[in-house]
Amino acid sequence: MESTSIFEVSGLSKSFAGLKAVDNVSMKIKTGEILGLIGPNGSGKTTFINLVTGMLEKDAGRITIDQHNIGEMQAYQIPVHGLVRTYQTIRLFKHLSSLENVMIGALGVGMKRKQAAAVAEDLLEELGLSERRDAPAQGLTFRDQRLLEIARALAAKPRFLLLDEPAAGLNEEETDELFALLSVMPEQKNIGILIVDHDMRLIMNLCNRLHVLNYGQTIAEGKPEDVRRNPEVVVAYLGSEAS
């Protein structure tokens, strides 16, 4: 039986020029589950991901994976402890081949070149990108670029995968494909997923639990069906008249 890891954030805060972008947010994810992080535009979702991955420096809070205090580490040290991410705006290495893009994910956590190449080949096969292995990433379709970013993240053999709006720009059919891919991933790969997205159909069907932010603060947590009925969430999304 595979071991369970826990990604835990407690009291995370970040202000920009006095404005609290993330305000005392805490959450916990275990491997094998999918947590949706939702909220209106500007609620602090992407800032949260930027903070936990070391892209931004936090003002306060503690971020751990099992016993490792990753909140105090340099950004480049975090993937080796099992946390990687994708981006709202695709950030591939455009002139590198698909294979090299994925290899960087593996090399970044210390794999040797041959092992990294083997891992990358397997992931490209798994995600249906093998035929494009030698093509520069910039030549891929938008859908394939989204998948390639996920493949690159998975190459690091993470325990936790943070997906920042992975369905953004995808059509309905492509989003369904993404759902099919992600829904089995936690069990297949024994990873935990934190997903941010505005596609409520995807979020509601995919996630085991939801965490809702508004103005940087947690306003609701729980199962999707409970959160959907939460009056504070309804107000945050639709305005006060909706309540």
Partner: peptide
């Protein structure tokens, strides 16, 4: 490995760093 990491870093340093490439 180093060359691939450097080429990645030369295209997008921040992303390479977030993938574990040591700055």
């Amino acid at each position: 490995s180093l060359g691939i990491a450097m080429r990645g870093a030369s295209e997008n340093f921040v992303t390479a760093r977030l993938m574990g490439v040591p700055a």
